[in-house]
């Protein structure tokens, strides 16, 4: 082995530097990047050491106060899955993120197609500027608005009244909560979601549209056979990314808009973690719930990526 290494040494020119010599000569690059790298290690990787909390018992306030947290193996996880409210929070998370994914994607693609068909530049730009606006509003502001709009005597119920439909108690009945979140999210993000699809549409070769016209295709056929296939790969990449984020139904809107009456439908895993972790100070259970979420998210991401590769589409990883 040593002989072999020595034997190949003649191919290495004497000028070729080792890793540390190279690094020393690149000290300026190192100075510009290593401090931030250490920062990221501290804020993104060091907290993973905190995952050990998931295997410790924080349930006894007396012991915790004395700094004693016994090791209990997977008991926190077992306890979690025996809890009805945790199982419901998994259901709520998946339900709301699926509603967001389906309606968010469909509405963004439909709006992108409609905008792509607009010929007057000014009108197109105006629609874009206005529909981007809600993306920049904070969730606090959006919930404040939603409380006006969906109030029992608010505009939405007035509109339903004109159509002869009985007023709906939007904010106080759990069964409406998922759809309320879906509606609000579509309202907030539909314009923003079009940006990527529109940029993919501008990359479509205009010759394809001309060829389709010569073949006698009308507007709808051009949309169906040129525009939509043109954004397919963008759609697949975004779908993979979104499937990786299926466990992230968010917590801001649920936390702000939910109340005691709707808790059964509004509590997501994140809200559950927040309640157990920061209100009840049971770091063990809350960390375990967080780990469960991360593990499922990684499995989903890799799974979607694998399926996409099998289908011969673009992949993320």
């Amino acid at each position: 082995m040593t002989n072999y290494t020595q034997g190949t040494a003649r191919y290495v020119s004497p000028k070729k530097k080792g890793f540390f010599q190279k690094l020393a000569s690149q000290w300026q690059l190192a100075l510009m990047s290593v401090p931030i790298f250490l920062y990221v290690l501290l804020f993104n990787y060091f907290p993973m050491w905190g995952w050990r909390n998931a295997f410790l018992d924080y349930s006894s306030k007396k012991l915790v106060a004395r700094g004693i947290t016994p090791y209990i193996g997977f008991d926190n996880f077992k306890w979690l899955f025996s809890r009805q409210d945790f199982l419901l929070s998994i259901r709520n998370t998946l339900a709301m993120s699926l509603i967001n994914l389906v309606f968010g994607t469909v509405s963004a693609i439909v709006l992108a197609v409609l905008l792509n068909e607009v010929r007057q530049k000014m009108f197109k730009r105006t629609v874009q500027t206005i529909t981007y606006l809600p993306h920049f509003l904070s969730m606090v502001i959006i919930v404040a608005m939603a409380q006006n709009i969906f109030a029992s005597n608010g505009p939405v119920n007035d509109l339903l009244g004109l159509l002869g439909i009985q007023p709906v108690f939007w904010l106080g009945e759990g069964k409406h909560f998922w759809w309320l979140v879906g509606i609000i999210n579509v309202w907030k993000e539909v314009g923003w979601g079009t940006i990527i699809y529109i940029s993919a549409m501008t990359a479509i070769d205009p010759a394809l549209y001309e060829a389709a016209s010569i073949d006698g295709a009308g507007r709808f056929q051009k949309i169906l056979h040129v525009t939509l296939p043109g954004i397919k790969s963008t759609f697949v990449i975004l779908l993979i990314m979104n499937i990786g984020h299926l466990m992230e139904a968010g917590f801001e809107i649920q936390y702000l808009l939910g109340n005691g009456l709707t808790a059964e439908f509004s509590r997501t895993i994140d809200v559950f973690v927040l309640e157990y972790g920061t209100s009840q100070m049971d770091f063990g259970v809350a960390t375990a719930a967080g780990i469960f979420k991360s593990v499922v998210a990684i499995i989903l991401l890799l799974g979607a990526n694998f399926i996409s590769r099998r289908l011969g589409e673009d992949t993320l990883v």
Partner: peptide, 13 residues
């Protein structure tokens, strides 16, 4: 961007 320690470990840090 894909792996996150989670709310509680960050809170403790």
């Amino acid at each position: 961007m894909y792996v996150n320690a989670g709310l509680i470990p960050n809170y403790l840090l």
